[in-house]
Design a binder for these strands. Structure first.
Lengths: 239, 239
DNA sequence: CGTTGACTTGAACGATATCAAACAGGGTGG
DNA sequence: CCACCCTGTTTGATATCGTTCAAGTCAACG
């Protein structure tokens, strides 16, 4: 294999995704087993407790990972954005349900071939490991939120978290305002993420709006007017 | 290095801990940097946001990982038992507070030496990776519990989880009864694990006791009389 | 035998859920 | 272009679960 230009070379998330660790010959082999996929919102990517067909990097869009109880109650256990890795390597079954929230572009890898590559290239597996550590950090942070924060604190924390991720991706920050963005999630999904009901989420949004901490245009576009106050609310009981 | 008998050879968790993946020469090098430590309950092992001095395998005992809000509210984000690995390799700062819950015996490894070894032995790092995946599974399972389960379901789930872990460790199952064990946690700690108050936890215990699903001897010793009903309660709203 | 700390129990309160209705925006067909 | 629906969201009234505050119990220990 020579110095052919690869699809990966022009990939939007090339340097931030797990592939960032790979050398030229390695990326060539990975590129050979990569297949792009485009999915509409609502499309199921992995089913809970089923064998996954492939792993993937998210190139654009947002994916939610959910777990459910028998009676339909649901909890989002992870939100994945561009450059995040999707799927649990070295596990036979997916421990959660993964579903596209927005339009999503994936760079997929067939399971077996991918795991062979991961075993072969130490740095690659190491990068996957680091990504898993990040996921664990996020999960434990969210456990604190779910177990100990009030509805008000939860919603404030959620907005800050989304704002931060949106900014770090660089896209979807609308206009010139530093903290104005489109929510990728509907109210029902936000509720499933925060362990609340739709109604409580809605009430907290209007509360923040009335208090002039955020501004709403439609129900999806958020402008954070007072980020400091939002930050304060997300951590303490008082405003 | 030859075939000297090593301390690791007689280690109670040798095969189940992360060291299980190591070959003879590898285990010899690991053994050389291992130091045993015995801690009483309440002893702090890692401080949130501070640089850890060492990593460790738990040989005996139980360790809780907690996160706190500024005003003192606390959430247990992980419970670690014998053979579990303690600490976040490749991370500068500990994302949580780790504290001995019972008497604990640790097999510690100095951070830098340990990470060098992990980088060198691919299988070893792989084993660490697998352990991290288990931790992530547990965290996400707990997110579902914290966000969506009622107090009754939470307590039932907790008892089943502890019973299962106690049994898999093999120790501390008292008498001949299949599901009789000593709770490692006090009520306050159970509350911090389930996102409840002490009082609610206590009330749920007496409820289970009155319904003849569990039997209490003192406040720490639990006998599960009807595991199936406990299982049912942990998943559905009704009993 | 009094003190201490962990646990249990009780009564009142409050935050969030539940149930129900109104509202808003966007697409469709007339 | 407008009437109509469809779905998602907001708002309101009430109910409920879990918290809070306060006492009371119990076992361990000096």
């Amino acid at each position: 294999m020579g110095e052919h230009p690869l699809r990966c070379d022009s990939c939007a998330v090339r340097h931030r995704a797990v592939c960032g660790a790979l050398t030229r010959p390695e990326i060539e082999r990975l590129s050979a087993i990569a297949h792009y996929k485009t999915l509409p919102p609502g499309q199921i990517i992995l089913r809970d407790n089923e064998e996954p067909g492939y792993f993937a990097n998210i190139v654009t869009g947002v994916v939610k990972l959910t777990k459910s109880l028998g009676d339909g109650r649901q909890q989002i256990v992870g939100l994945q954005f561009a450059s995040d890795f999707l799927g649990r390597p070295f596990r036979a079954f997916s421990p959660y349900h993964a579903e596209a929230v927005t339009d999503v572009q994936l760079c997929t890898f067939e399971k077996v071939q991918f795991e062979r590559l991961a075993k072969e290239y130490h740095d690659f597996e190491h990068r996957l490991f680091e990504h898993t550590l990040d996921e664990l950090d996020a999960a434990q942070e969210w456990m604190l939120l779910l177990g100990r924060k009030s509805a008000e604190e939860k919603v404030a924390s959620f907005l800050l978290m989304v704002a931060r991720r949106m900014q770090s991706i660089g896209c979807k920050v609308l206009g010139n305002a530093p903290m104005r963005f489109e929510l990728p999630l509907a109210r029902a999904e936000i509720a499933d993420f925060l362990g609340l009901t739709i109604e409580t989420v809605s009430r907290q949004f209007t509360r923040l709006k009335v208090d002039k901490i955020i501004h709403l245009e439609g129900s999806r576009t958020i402008a954070v007017i007072d980020p400091l106050r939002l930050q304060a609310i997300s951590e303490r009981a008082d405003g």
